[in-house]
Every structure is written in structure tokens, then in C-alpha cells.
């Protein structure tokens, strides 16, 4: 997929008011976001990183579930697009006093906000909001459902390093069952033609995922042998220790990526992680910092991808014009 050559063509492929999930997107729409993000990445490398694309627009970051990384990334993306920003967290809001999400959102909308970026612990909350509001809704992670901008930055990073996605073997390791990143990644990767393998303990990687078009295995060696990309997901031991697996130590022994296992992978296999990393659990510390790790590029690209998403849902068409400013 020669991205720049196709830019003009694929930019036509975005008419969505919201970004709620990857599942409902077409491959063309995903490519449109990636191509748009490429232009915004160039903006981020200039001395003056700000463009006027969202000047006069108001964006609310409605983070009902706590988040540091994603919220910071969205905030910075919004600032670089010159939007006015309101940050809203559940702890310091009327949601804490029992106000419903619908009322909270409609009150915000009554102040004529243009975009609501929502993070919520309940799956489907952004979809619910999109039905009761006129504002644009961007999903910044809903429950165990989806985290679309994370998947977009993941495929952006893979495309940047590997040239294209089609035909790649991508292995996602760890807690798949509770992971919104996994679901969004599965949709984005399979839509773009990658072969996805899921691996982890049977309790966290049920066979049901095969129906989403993935291979499921509980054998780490088998999972990583042919992988072009290995995406490690965070193991949330605070939540799952009780019945999902016996111990962090056992998890690490069975599914952790250490130096010896790294030696069994393809020499050019990329190592990814959406963060925050548990060093020494799902990944050895020095691998996380090693030359095959693209963890920090993912963070950089996240900014460009989020700028692209905010730009597109607001009806933006050609980022080239913007970057000419």
C-alpha cells in the first residue's frame, strides 16, 4: 500500500461523524486514518507543532475511567489542532453525585461542545452517548470492548516499520479476554490482511476468539516462531490473580518474553506494547528497551493518529492544506 500515492483517493473514504470502534470500519477507512496521520506526524516534527484545524472547536475529554497516557495523548493532539479543551474526570464531577452519563453529556452539549472524547469502564458507553448527543464522539477506550485509537496507532507503527500490513503474522500475547486493545487490534489487523495469533493462558484467551478470525494457541513457542510482530498486552495482576492464573511467576515462566524466547523469533520481528509495561512479567526489562522494541514510537505515533481522528470526525478532508500553514 503505497500510502502517499494513494492519499488523495483514500481520503474520500471518511464520512463518519464518530469513531466508536474499529469493527464497523472498512479497510479503506482505516487506511484513510493512517494516511491522514502521516501528514500530522510531519507536523509534529516541525519547530512549530500547532495547526489551526480545530480552531474555535471545543473538545471535552470525558474520562469516566482514569487514564494518564491516553488522556495526555488526546489532550496534546487537541492542543496541536488549536481546539479549546475541557477535561472532565469522574472523580471531580456530578457523575460522582449520581448524575447519569446521559445527563452529564447533554449538559456538556448544551454548552455547544463539538467533540466528546470518552473513556469509560462500561462497554458500549460511547455508542450509547452517540445516540443521545449531536456532538462527535470519539471512543478513547470502553470497558473490554474497543480502544480504536490504540489499534490505529498500532497498525500505523507496523505499516511504518514493515511497509504494509497484508500478509504479516501478528501475535498478540497476554490478557485477551479483558482487553479492549486486543479486540481493536484484531479487527484492524484482520481487515488490513494480517494473520493474527492470540496466545496466553486458556482462561484469558478463550477459543471463542477464533470466531473473530484469529488463531488461538496456548503454546508460547508456537505463537512467536513465525511472528513478524509481537504485541504484548499488560497482565493486570491486581484484577485477575484469583481465578484466572495461579501466579505472576507462573505466567511469566509460561508466557513472558525473555531473551531466550526472543532468540526463537524472526530477527526482524517487532516488539510492541501498549503500556503501561510490567517489567519482568510479560516482557524482560531489557527487551522492552531493546532495539526491536517500538514502544516509544507507538507513543509518538499515537499523537499523530489522534490528531488525524479528531480532524476527520470534524469533517476535515485534506491535511496537506493544514500543514501548509
Amino acid at each position: 500500500m503505497g500510502s502517499m500515492a494513494k492519499t488523495g483517493e483514500s481520503l474520500m473514504a471518511w464520512n463518519r461523524k464518530h469513531l466508536l470502534d474499529i469493527e464497523s470500519l472498512t479497510a479503506e477507512e482505516i487506511t484513510t486514518v493512517l494516511d491522514t496521520a502521516l501528514a500530522f506526524k510531519a507536523v509534529g516534527e516541525r519547530a512549530i507543532k500547532k495547526v489551526p484545524a480545530l480552531r474555535g472547536k471545543t473538545v471535552v475529554n470525558l474520562f469516566v475511567e482514569p487514564s494518564t497516557r491516553t488522556r495526555t495523548s488526546f489532550e496534546l493532539a487537541e492542543q496541536r489542532l488549536s481546539a479549546d479543551i475541557i477535561n472532565f474526570t469522574a472523580e471531580a464531577s456530578s457523575l460522582k453525585k449520581g448524575e447519569t452519563l446521559k445527563d452529564t453529556a447533554r449538559n456538556l452539549e448544551a454548552m455547544n461542545v463539538d467533540v466528546i472524547v470518552i473513556r469509560h469502564s462500561a462497554s458500549g458507553a460511547p455508542h450509547f452517548l452517540s445516540r443521545v448527543l449531536n456532538a462527535h464522539v470519539v471512543n478513547a477506550g470502553d470497558g473490554a470492548h474497543e480502544h480504536p485509537t490504540q489499534a490505529l496507532l498500532d497498525v500505523f507503527t507496523i505499516r511504518e516499520k514493515k511497509g504494509s500490513i497484508a500478509g504479516l503474522n501478528v501475535t498478540i500475547l497476554g490478557d485477551i479476554l479483558y482487553s479492549r486493545v486486543a479486540r481493536s487490534d484484531i479487527w484492524a489487523l484482520t481487515k488490513l490482511g494480517a494473520k493474527v495469533t492470540l496466545c496466553g493462558p486458556a482462561t484469558l484467551v478463550p477459543k471463542t476468539f477464533e470466531q473473530m478470525g484469529c488463531r488461538v494457541t496456548h503454546n508460547m513457542e508456537e505463537a512467536i516462531r513465525d511472528a513478524d510482530v509481537i504485541n504484548l498486552l499488560r497482565i493486570q495482576h491486581e484484577r485477575q490473580r484469583k481465578t484466572m492464573f495461579p501466579s505472576i511467576n507462573e505466567y511469566s515462566r509460561l508466557f513472558g518474553l525473555d531473551r531466550q524466547r526472543l532468540g526463537q523469533t524472526k530477527p526482524d520481528a517487532l516488539i510492541m506494547h501498549p503500556g503501561p509495561i510490567n517489567r519482568g512479567v510479560e516482557i524482560d526489562s531489557d527487551i522492552a528497551d531493546g532495539e526491536r522494541s517500538v514502544v516509544l514510537q507507538q507513543v509518538t505515533n499515537g499523537l499523530a493518529v489522534r490528531m488525524a481522528v479528531l480532524f476527520l470526525v470534524n469533517g476535515g478532508k485534506d491535511p496537506q492544506e493544514i500543514s501548509a500553514n
Partner: peptide, 11 residues
């Protein structure tokens, strides 16, 4: 609990 709960991320 089945395919749709998996897809929707609902418990």
C-alpha cells in the same frame, strides 16, 4: 457468555 459477549466486551 459466547461469541457476542466476546465481541462486545460485555461480561
Amino acid at each position: 457468555e459466547g461469541y457476542w459477549s466476546t465481541l462486545l466486551g460485555l461480561r
